[in-house]
């Protein structure tokens, strides 16, 4: 195998490790990139080079950006006193896509998990408590996944913030938009019923 072929094989192997791609789809993607060298391959390589050099976690909230403090934390218009706690950066991006939340975020970096020996100190929970004290936060919104681990973490955070003089809320749980009752699991229906509101 020539060096060039080996380089392409290495690229295919690397691409195959990405989520959503396997060896065959990685091979197709690499072939496509090579065919569109000027249009895709070179700009992609440049963009990846830049991101590799500049991407970093925000020192305040844990979001990913290119500066020490991310754009959201630097934006004074977002100092509403509301802090939305999410598990992962992907969750923060999902919330931002919705454009409904105008406050700031705090990314925990996971959830408490006995199985994986992840305790409060492995997450950014102590930092969250400190932010609530330092930044004049009036409401902490727990936007954690509706899983056992997610809700265990939410209850733990609520405990930690007890007595901090801050309102702690969580996202509603229940019937999703476009959802049909017939297809929902018992737990979701039960949660939706508990959280019913006047109509």
């Amino acid at each position: 195998m020539s060096d060039a072929t080996r380089d392409i094989e290495t690229l295919i192997e690397m691409m195959a490790r990405l989520p959503g791609l396997g060896p065959r789809s990685a091979r197709r993607a690499v072939l496509h990139l090579i065919k569109k060298r000027e249009l895709l391959l070179t700009p992609l390589a440049d963009a990846m080079h830049v991101v590799a050099a500049t991407a970093r976690e925000c020192a305040r909230c844990g979001n990913i950006g290119t500066t020490e403090i991310c754009d959201i934390c630097r934006d004074e218009r977002r100092a509403t006193g509301e802090l939305c706690v999410v598990e992962d950066v992907a969750d923060l991006w999902a919330m931002e896509r919705g454009q409904a939340f105008k406050g700031r975020y705090h990314v925990l970096g996971g959830t408490l998990s006995a199985l994986d020996a992840i305790g409060p100190d492995e997450l950014r929970i102590p930092r969250l408590v400190q932010r609530v004290k330092d930044e004049g936060i009036t409401e902490v919104i727990l936007a954690l996944n509706a899983t056992v681990d997610g809700q265990t973490t939410a209850h733990y955070i609520a405990d930690q913030l007890e007595g901090a003089g801050v309102r702690v809320t969580s996202l509603a749980q229940g019937v999703p938009i476009g959802g049909e009752l017939d297809y929902l699991d018992d737990g979701t229906i039960s949660a939706a019923l508990k959280a019913r509101k006047s109509f």
Binding site: A114, L115, A146, V148, Q151, T152, H155, A158, D159, Q173, D185, D186, G187, T188, S190, A191, K194
Partner: peptide, 27 residues
């Protein structure tokens, strides 16, 4: 095939802690 969900415990922090203790101790 699901028989019984215990998702309704998620809003009860002490009961959820009980569920976590049972499953973690068995594991």
């Amino acid at each position: 095939e699901p028989l019984k969900s215990r998702a309704d415990l998620m809003s009860d922090r002490v009961a959820l802690a009980g569920l976590n203790a049972v499953t973690a101790l068995l594991h």
